[in-house]
């Protein structure tokens, strides 16, 4: 395995960087989107239920099928991969965000309302800080899931660590398969760790 790394470093490093890039782009877009949808759901509670139901249906579609379905719209490549990964993440993020915000003590929320906070003030000054743990848990879950599902994206030419896995499978090259699996696992574990560390920083 080390021989392979030394003889073809670019065959490992480039898919890895690609994977990190894909994950980062997906994370930023999906967190922004989920935050926006969460705010909308706070204003219009029915919308939260509709969105949750919709994205749970999306999430139940196997990834390869969803990638294939998206190809006519955005073609082969990274855009399609990121679009699909963001759609999957909405289920995880929105679900965790809404559940976390709703779990804030109803007495505290009523007090916030009772002293004259608007819906937005209650959301950002009371619910978000008190639900920080659940919000971060949702983000960590989404990142790990993105890294995992992202390997399938190689099937639609989006690159990433999936390239190593698929190549390895096609040519029966165990070393490639091992490198692909090992690196996605390491990536997932370290992303989780980094986010946990960031969470501690935010909580002060």
């Amino acid at each position: 395995m080390i021989d392979f790394l030394l003889s073809h470093p670019e065959k490992i490093v480039s898919p890895l960087l690609n994977h990190i890039y894909m994950t980062a782009v997906t994370l930023v877009i999906s967190v922004l989107l989920a935050s926006l949808l969460t705010v909308l759901a706070a204003v219009i509670p029915v919308l939260g239920n509709i969105l949750t139901a919709f994205f749970s249906v999306v999430y139940s579609i196997p990834s390869l099928a969803l990638f294939a379905l998206q190809i006519p719209l955005t073609g082969l490549g990274r855009t399609t991969a990121v679009t699909v990964l963001c759609a999957y993440n909405q289920y995880l993020l929105l679900g965790n965000f809404l559940a976390g915000l709703n779990e804030v003590d109803p007495g505290v929320r009523e007090a916030a309302k009772g002293i004259g906070m608007t819906v937005m003030q209650e959301l950002f000054l009371v619910q978000v800080p008190l639900a920080k743990k659940a919000l971060f848990a949702g983000i960590r879950l989404a990142v790990v899931s993105t890294i995992g599902i992202g390997t399938i994206a190689a099937a639609i030419n989006a690159g990433g660590l999936g390239v190593l896995l698929f190549d390895g499978l096609r040519t029966m090259n165990t070393v490639k398969i091992l490198w692909g699996s090992l690196l996605s696992a390491i990536l997932a574990v370290s992303a989780n760790g980094i986010l946990k560390w960031a969470e501690k920083g935010v909580s002060g």
Partner: peptide, 9 residues
């Protein structure tokens, strides 16, 4: 209100 009322954070 009774009990909680205050914002804990």
């Amino acid at each position: 209100i009774q009990q909680i009322g205050l914002l804990p954070h």
